[in-house]
Design a protein around this nucleic acid. Sequence first.
DNA 1: CGTGCTTTTGAAAATCATCAAGTATAGTGG
DNA 2: CCACTATACTTGATGATTTTCAAAAGCACG
Lengths: 253, 253
Amino acid sequence: MLSASMSAVRSTIVVPLRPASVCAKCQQRSISVCNSIPDEDLHRLAAIATTAAIPVGHGIIEEGEKADHFYNITAGTARLFKSMPDGRRQIIGFAGPGTFLGLAVSDSFGFGAEALEPMRVCRFSRVGLGRLMEDFAVIEQRLLQVASTELVLAHEHMLLLGRKTARERLASFLLARGAMSSSCTMAPAFSQHRIVALPMARSDIADYLGLTIETVSRTLTRLKADRLIALPDAHSVDLLDPARLKVIADGDF
Amino acid sequence: MLSASMSAVRSTIVVPLRPASVCAKCQQRSISVCNSIPDEDLHRLAAIATTAAIPVGHGIIEEGEKADHFYNITAGTARLFKSMPDGRRQIIGFAGPGTFLGLAVSDSFGFGAEALEPMRVCRFSRVGLGRLMEDFAVIEQRLLQVASTELVLAHEHMLLLGRKTARERLASFLLARGAMSSSCTMAPAFSQHRIVALPMARSDIADYLGLTIETVSRTLTRLKADRLIALPDAHSVDLLDPARLKVIADGDF
DNA sequence: CGTGCTTTTGAAAATCATCAAGTATAGTGG
DNA sequence: CCACTATACTTGATGATTTTCAAAAGCACG
């Protein structure tokens, strides 16, 4: 039941000065919280933001760390997780570009975040963002929206963790990944892009789905044997029969 | 694995007219979202609110229902749940007095809510609250706070569902209940109020913890045999050794 | 082209679920 | 108020899914 925990070295590798116009050109602004701020006031956002590059395996947020900064992911993917003293770990989600990290009620983070792929993040001071929110109430609205969406996903995941079988969990996971990639890449609707990339390791999938790596591997093998998926390599899955996968994921046979 | 699902009859039993001053006298205002509104403007809140009494077992929110109303619980407890076509159910939380129900991103509720005890709720129209929020941005701040708190609890629960053993789950649950009751009743710190009330049935506990009623029952029996708890009756638990329960709950031995 | 890590596969063990009674509790009507 | 019935809870025996332990195969990186 113990999960291999990565070294997760704390990293503040790059914190360059921030040119005033960087935010305007940011690829991720359109889908992130930052789009709450009109172009002419972007300099105020830029003023409180620094960027950082996070190498694979390094931490962005340490569990229990003082929450005096927020983050916005501009590139790469992170795993968000909670862990137990003996090393057991539950991944509560994967965060990709555009994701706002750092909603915290208390003054410390309840979860950790580590880079799954090389990442770039935008870093805001808590007080700075607080001051900005006073002038732009839209930010709060946006954050409420973000939090509500997260909450819906969390509820869905609780159902998965509490009540679904290993097979159902994997089917749910793969479909969610599929939906995510097709919506993010703005792929045209007609393109049946069924190949889903899995940037995370089996241990991450296991810790996300509340299983062991062996069960994940075995279950994927069985899904392959049942011709529901193909596994070109360990980190990509071809969804051969999304409809039947959906039936399995939802548990109605 | 199938869970007994209650009849959950939809109920709009009582929807009385609302005197303008009711909100001012509301016992729950101090701890609820409603305290965001100053006394002199309470009539505006009262204008969009109606109250309803919900009998035991009846539904407040139906899963998938159009989310054009919000609720605030003024008395009693509700179970919030998601279910699967075959009847499997995951309880995502229990909501008591002061709880705001209805944070929804999409236009429909992702979960259902049923009365565990006789309840009273305050019902607000979505549009009405939306208009109120335009004038009182504090409401949004408060809702963001509520959502963030919920999110932290959800993450904690994911760790429980994905990684904890039955024994750890029960210990966590009982301690959380204990902390809740001691903070809600404003019991003086010195009173070692170790007796915790469990208003919900074993099936609710099971569906909350991702277990079966049998496992819940057996695990409680074992905790009793280990002198960690006492069971005066089926619906109250005496936490004999909270410290050791905490050690078990956190999984560090 | 090794070497180390990840993934897969196999066999045994364990926790938890299912099936099946039996006991206690609560609610109802006499 | 008490007996009766229905429901909820507990307990036992069995079984299945998943975990654990173990090792081989596949990849990736130096």
